[in-house]
Design a protein around this nucleic acid. Structure first.
Length: 855
DNA sequence: TATTCGCACTTTTTT
DNA sequence: AGTGCGAATA
């Protein structure tokens, strides 16, 4: 067993071990190497081919899933599958479960997603879903749906992802096959062992058999898949089950600079459940980790794009040297936009998989149905796609009839054409026949020995898919056509690879097992964008980790605002995720957080990730970018965020620094410039024309920030008196970001940061001057309408009034929602829209003319 | 039967 | 905000 840290060359150890084994005369086909992704498998195969001087094609290198799929093809009969069995992906499973739920009228009780995840949770552990969920609130539903689900899969000659593993596990118990399997491999090696689930561990034990020749490598600090049933405990169990094993700890990191490593160590050491490891590197020093705090996600994207430009022009870096990591896919959109606007090439790894696109799934369904008539779900999917006049009623008749006769829908459709289902009338029969002719024609194409690519072309033609899309002529349609062309070209590659001998089923299997992240690798110069999960095992000279905000990273469950003690495990996994993210970086690590982030159409005030404060100070350069001066050339905007930022930017208080509705002494004392009855910006700045007094208040010494900005290891909680000080620091930081003060940034011990000094990220001082090039904090007087409530409860508009446009931070009153605070504003005048956090109903977007500022 | 409109759901992470 | 589904309509 190798227990090793990030960047210590775990995989290299594995590769070398395999090469050694082969050198010692072990036959390559007797070696099983399990990697976490298909991509990693490909890389391993490539490296081995190089080392051994021949193509390592006979070796069993792959993921658990691809390995099991391969074995199931060999032993399909023993598990009751055909040789063309179908693999259900997430989407297929969800559709099936959705259909079952509907069939049983359980729609009120559960969503397909919840049922699927309950089933999945059980299967990940290798347990029976009904038993496993017996005590849960879904127990009733699962006990109804799961057997139906299982039977449907059996009927369809299909397995889901978990079955792929479970069926192989069952094979070990098979009289004839079990012993064979157990003796199939002389050596077993497993990468990323911390991410194996109990079923996978069982498989490993089975494959190892009696030889006990097993090598695993893993890092418990990088266990980020517990939600998929992974048990880092397997590392411990391993010691128990193989007490004679040697444990090797690799603690030297060859990847990152000392600064980056120290930052990552600083974060991960806050986890309680871990093996103690202290990674070290001989790459001394390094540029400090930069934490850039910006206004919102657009500013974030803009900053990252600008920094990339700077790195290219100032440091001669290439786009391909850089990666942008985020917690969720949804963050990629804005980033893309900002990169595109600067002409930076990028590629996104993962996301909505190519193979999940509707048109691709449709064509895949044709492929499945032709090679496997039992594929009822596929039949359902394409019988009327593209529309050929076969309606719901007709299909319902076929379904009912087929189920009764226990035949496939396709067979049922044939009977219908023959007139054996009287409810299906002549007109419908004719249309059905047309459909069957398409399928049969395709079957003939297949039989004639067409390559997979040729076959797919025929599908696109004969199904009339191409014709329909071309007729449509919309950009969307041509995009779809492109995707289909892409699919065909993939098939063509597959044909080349297999000398045209690969079957449809094999191609379909490969697609099913291909993860979105498996796409071709880094060659070519483009910035890589992906989730942190997808980045595991990769490294880049420069890494941006965006969205370092509490609630996003660490991510937090919907209905909760704070991490409860019982969430410790979740939080620790998030921390490991941060650790993975940070340790991807070789030379430079840049973190960004936004003060305001939009989720859907909603606007949320965000606070910096707690992980940021776990980074040792002397590794970190902090820069807080003030909200930009309003771009008057574009449109007049209110002082967006200026006053609000007093609330949002204190970093470590709760959602707001002070709740205007909270008149508790603690809260009040936290205010820098307390005023009368309760706190809100209007109190401080009743006419919105003066600079917020707190910003020009010099009572907070500069040296409070950033040197001691976040010294507290514990998150100051709601009532902590400490809030005062954090708040004050924030105030002073504001001033730094304001104008006069020279911004301070932290210098890493001994070494001068190149951040800021070089023009790469802009000289920090210049940058501040530039961005805060306005004399005063912006406030506006604009023409507009003032709304007031007239006696009859209607709103009236005073057209002539000149007044202050409602600014973010203002407290307003809405007729039905009551008091609320404006978070952001869009547009102006009559069309001004405000995102308002109401104390009664939460955040809503409301037209400004429907609210009254409270003065 | 096809089309259109409105509503609900989505966004944690993936083999 | 975008999608997909179901109900209502042509």
């Amino acid at each position: 067993m190798v227990l090793a840290g990030a960047g210590s060359g775990k995989t290299r150890v594995l590769v070398q071990r395999i090469a050694t084994l082969v050198g010692r005369g072990v036959h390559p086909s007797r070696i099983l190497a399990v990697t976490f992704t298909n991509k990693a498998a490909g890389e391993m195969r490539e490296r081995l081919s190089e080392m051994l001087g021949y193509h390592a094609s006979s070796m069993w290198i792959g993921t658990f899933h691809s390995t099991c799929a391969r074995l199931l093809r060999m032993f399909h009969e023993e598990v009751g599958l055909s040789s063309n069995y179908n693999i259900f992906d997430d989407d297929d499973q969800m559709r099936l479960i959705g259909a079952l739920i509907k069939e049983r009228n359980l729609k009120e009780e559960a969503t397909p997603r919840s049922v699927l995840s309950a089933i999945g949770a059980a299967k990940n552990k290798g347990e029976d879903p009904v038993e496993y969920n017996k005590l849960g609130y879904l127990s009733q539903i699962i006990s109804i749906i799961y057997p139906m689900y299982r039977d449907a899969l059996a009927r369809e000659d299909a397995v889901d992802f978990n079955d792929l593993l479970l069926k192989v596990r069952d094979l070990f118990a098979h009289k004839a096959v079990g012993p064979k399997l157990r003796q199939r491999f002389d050596h077993v090696l497993v990468d990323e062992f911390q991410d194996t689930n109990p079923v996978q561990y069982n498989l490993v034990q089975g494959f190892v058999g009696d030889t006990r020749n097993l090598t695993v490598v893993g890092d418990d600090d990088q266990s980020i898949y517990s939600w998929r049933g992974a048990e880092p405990r397997n590392l411990l169990d391993f010691k128990r089950d193989y007490p004679d094993s040697a444990e090797v700890k690799l603690e030297q990191n060859y990847r990152s600079t000392n600064v980056i490593l120290t930052a990552a160590n600083g974060v991960i050491q806050n986890n309680r459940d871990r093996h103690r490891k202290q990674l070290w590197t001989d790459r001394d020093g390094g540029d400090p980790v930069l934490w850039e705090e910006v206004r919102d996600e657009r500013a974030e994207g803009d900053f990252v794009a600008g920094a990339i430009e700077g790195l290219v022009s100032e440091e001669g870096r290439e786009w391909g040297d850089m990666a942008i990591l985020y917690r969720t896919h949804s963050q990629s959109r804005v980033l893309e936009e900002m990169l595109r606007s600067r002409g930076i090439m990028y590629k996104i790894v993962g996301g909505v998989s190519f193979f999940q696109r509707k048109e691709v799934k449709d064509i895949r369904a044709y492929m499945r149905l032709v090679s496997n008539a039992a594929a009822d779900m596929s039949f359902d999917r394409i019988v009327n796609v593209p529309a050929r006049g076969i309606g719901k009623t007709t299909v319902d008749h076929i379904r009912y009839y087929s189920r009764g006769k226990r035949i496939s829908y396709l067979a049922g459709a044939r009977d219908a054409v023959r007139g054996e289902i009287p409810e299906v009338r002549a007109a419908a029969r004719k249309k059905l026949q047309k459909f069957l002719e398409i399928i049969d024609g395709l079957a003939a194409v297949k039989k004639a020995g067409a390559s997979v690519a040729e076959f797919l072309i025929q599908v696109v033609e004969r199904s009339t898919y191409r014709e329909r899309l071309e007729k449509e002529g919309t950009p969307d349609a041509s995009e779809r056509l492109n995707n289909l062309a892409e699919l065909v070209s993939m098939a063509s590659d597959f044909d080349d690879e297999t000398d045209g001998e690969g079957s449809l089923a094999e191609f379909e299997e490969r697609i099913s097992l291909a993860s979105a992240a498996d796409g071709e690798d880094g060659k070519g110069s483009a910035v890589t964008m992906m989730t942190v999960h997808a980045a595991k095992g990769l490294e880049y000279p420069i890494v941006f980790v965006v969205g370092m905000e509490d609630g996003l990273f660490p991510s937090i469950r919907e209905n909760r605002d704070v991490f409860e003690p019982e969430d410790r495990k979740d939080l620790e996994e998030e921390r490991r995720l941060a650790y993975v993210a940070f340790t991807r970086a070789m030379d430079r690590l840049v973190l960004t957080s936004a003060r305001v982030r939009r989720k859907w159409a909603e606007v949320k005030i965000a606070k910096p990730s707690r992980f940021l404060q776990e980074i040792p100070e002397d590794c970190l350069a902090i820069r807080i970018v003030p909200d930009p001066a309003p771009d008057t050339s574009f449109r007049r905007r209110p002082a967006r965020g200026r006053s609000r930022s007093r609330y949002s930017n204190d970093g470590y208080s709760d959602t707001y620094a002070a709740d205007p509705y909270d008149s508790s002494p603690t809260s009040r004392s936290a205010r820098a410039a307390p005023s009368s009855s309760y706190e809100n910006p209007s109190d401080l700045d009743p006419d919105h024309t003066r600079i917020d007094p707190t910003y020009s208040d010099h009572s907070y010494p500069d040296h409070n920030y950033p040197d001691h900005s976040y010294p507290d290891h514990n998150y100051p909680d709601h009532n902590s008196p400490d809030r005062t000080s954090t708040h004050q620091r924030a105030q002073s930081s504001r001033r730094l970001g304001g104008r006069s003060a020279t911004p301070k940034r932290h210098k890493p011990s001994g070494r001068q940061a190149s951040f800021g000094q070089q023009s790469l990220f802009g000289d920090i001082d210049d940058e501040f001057d530039q961005r805060s090039g306005y004399e005063e904090f912006p406030t506006y007087t604009v023409e507009g309408e003032i709304a007031y409530e007239s006696g009859d409860g209607e709103y009236q508009f005073d057209q002539s009034a000149e007044f202050v446009e409602i600014c973010a931070g203002t407290t307003v009153r809405h007729k039905s929602f009551g008091l609320g605070r404006v978070l952001t504003s869009q547009g102006h005048g009559k069309n001004q829209k405000l995102a308002i956090d109401f104390s009664t109903v939460g955040v809503k977007t409301v037209m400004a003319r429907f609210v009254d500022p409270v003065f």
